[in-house]
């Protein structure tokens, strides 16, 4: 084996240029679609393909066009309010945006995952299986949320105190030109 003959190599390069990537990538993708197609065939054979397809595509659409815009907009709202409420005189007030963002984000994450328990959505099946009520979960989530915000507030207060002794720092912006 002394490498590919020049004509074959040329053919491969032309094929790659036409395809747009290394032909190995095409092989890998064909393998991917073959396996995924086989599994999709099993879904079809199980007689659940309509619901499956709706949930599968719906999952991607829900994330990209509902969940992502929602939290991106929430973040824009937090950022703009943080910009408006900045206290310019003192200069020693550190930016508080992340002290709001982090507890709010973590609390929202916990709600996103556990909403069937927190909002009693699975109450009926839960009671049948576990023999108990889902009532305490709302309290648990509120408790965790309160602890997160309280912890954040305390951390912020400490950073304000630590900054009080220092000379005011200039407002932080990326240098413009």
């Amino acid at each position: 084996m002394s490498g590919l003959p020049p004509r074959l190599r040329e053919l491969r390069e032309r094929a790659a240029a036409r395809y747009g990537a290394n032909p190995l990538q095409l092989l890998a993708l064909i393998a991917c679609f073959a396996l995924a197609g086989y599994a999709a065939g099993r879904v079809f054979a199980a007689g659940i393909w309509i619901g499956f397809l709706i949930w599968f595509v719906g999952a991607a659409i829900f994330h990209d066009f509902v969940l992502f815009p929602l939290y991106a907009l929430a973040d824009v709202a937090i950022r703009s309010s943080s910009r408006h409420r900045r206290i310019p005189v003192a200069g020693r007030w550190p930016p508080w945006i992340n002290y709001l963002r982090v507890p709010a984000g973590l609390s929202a994450l916990l709600l996103l995952v556990w909403f069937p328990l927190i909002l009693h959505g699975s109450q009926h099946e839960y009671r049948k299986a576990v023999g108990l009520d889902t009532t305490p979960y709302l309290g648990h989530w509120l408790l965790v949320t309160a602890v997160l915000f309280a912890g954040s507030a305390v951390t912020y207060a400490l950073s304000v105190r630590a900054g009080a002794g220092r000379p005011p720092t200039p407002p932080r912006h990326l240098p413009k030109a």
Binding site: L35, A39, A40, Y126
Partner: peptide, 21 residues
């Protein structure tokens, strides 16, 4: 895991075949 069975399919088939895809 929260016993919130709102999906219109058997969890076992969907979660297994979905995993392979």
């Amino acid at each position: 895991i929260q016993l919130f069975y709102v999906f219109p399919f058997s969890f076992y088939s969907a979660h297994l075949y979905g995993a392979w895809i």
